[in-house]
Write a protein that binds this DNA or RNA. Structure first.
Length: 269
DNA sequence: AGCGGATGTACAG
DNA sequence: TGTACCTCCGCTT
């Protein structure tokens, strides 16, 4: 259940467990069998992550491109690996570890050129150290689209999903329906910096917490909810409950087929 | 047992 | 804008 922090964490986890050595590659479910046969026994050279896209570099063969979509999961374990169930799209295995991929939107063997094309259609990622928010600002500041929709558009910012969207707009007191062009440069710079900090914390903890880093107002110290997703949040999935800061009922609405959450008391147009 | 949802995206019209 | 796709989990019967 992935936003960008999950993918960057998975990249690190693959690097730690599999890089530098030959990897046994298989597709128990069958949908990736042809590519798995080409990859089996090759050395994993490195990994990359951009937004919600994960890339694994196999010596002399190409990249495995993984996108988890809404349901995809990657699970790690030690050896001996249990018999794979019939939903395991991809299994990686070495002398110490295994990794099972289930339910991804994408699991494909691609070339370097194809990988470059994917990077080109993604916006800057708050977790990629060479990226900055400038390109995103160019689009946001000229757009009549709502900031809530812009934040979810991976061509504008890569890696933000429904939880970080809701939480970052809450933290900065911005009504989700405000058009991008009505954001100030100062507001955007603060959002971009905060996304970087929150998402780095997300990579470290492997979950989304929006209590820390606590460079926002003291009032934010009130006890937040531990959501089903396992993190501490202020508005995400808190519809009709009282805002932890002002007591107003948290609202929810459908926006582009996703559930939006915000506090009408704290977030202004 | 069967349903509805869920941290997502792509495509059709 | 609607729909299809991938899987799992928790709730209802």
């Amino acid at each position: 259940m992935p936003e960008g922090h999950t993918i960057h964490r998975l990249a690190e986890d693959h690097l730690d467990r599999f890089a530098g050595w030959p990897v046994r590659v298989s597709s128990p479910q069958g949908k990736f069998s042809d590519s798995a046969a080409l990859l089996d026994g090759r050395v994993l050279n490195g990994v990359d992550a951009h937004g919600k896209h994960l890339f694994l570099d196999f010596e002399g063969t190409g990249w495995i491109h993984i996108h988890l979509g809404l349901f995809g999961k990657l699970g790690f374990g030690t050896v001996p690996a249990p018999p794979p169930t019939d939903t395991v799209r991809l299994r990686l295995l070495n002398d110490e570890h295994h990794a099972d991929l289930r339910g991804p939107t994408t699991c494909a063997l691609i070339t370097g050129a194809e990988k470059r094309a994917i990077h080109e259609r993604l916006g800057p990622d708050p977790l990629r150290s060479d990226d900055d928010g400038e390109r995103a600002w160019q689009r946001i500041s000229r757009s009549r689209i709502t900031v809530a929709a812009l934040l979810m558009d991976q061509k504008v910012v890569a890696g933000v999903g429904n939880v970080y969207r809701a939480e970052v707009l809450f933290r900065h007191g911005i009504d989700p329906y405000r058009p991008g062009k009505d954001l100030t440069r100062r507001e955007w710079d603060a959002i971009w910096a905060d996304l970087g900090a929150l998402m780095r914390e997300g990579v470290r903890n492997n979950r989304i917490d929006t209590v820390r880093p606590a460079h926002l107002p003291e009032a934010m110290g009130r006890p937040p909810r531990v959501d089903d997703h396992g993190g501490e949040v202020y508005v995400y999935r808190r519809a009709r409950q009282a805002c932890h800061i002002c007591g107003t009922e948290i609202r929810t609405a459908d926006l582009a087929a996703r559930n939006l959450f915000w506090c009408p008391g704290c977030q202004s147009a």
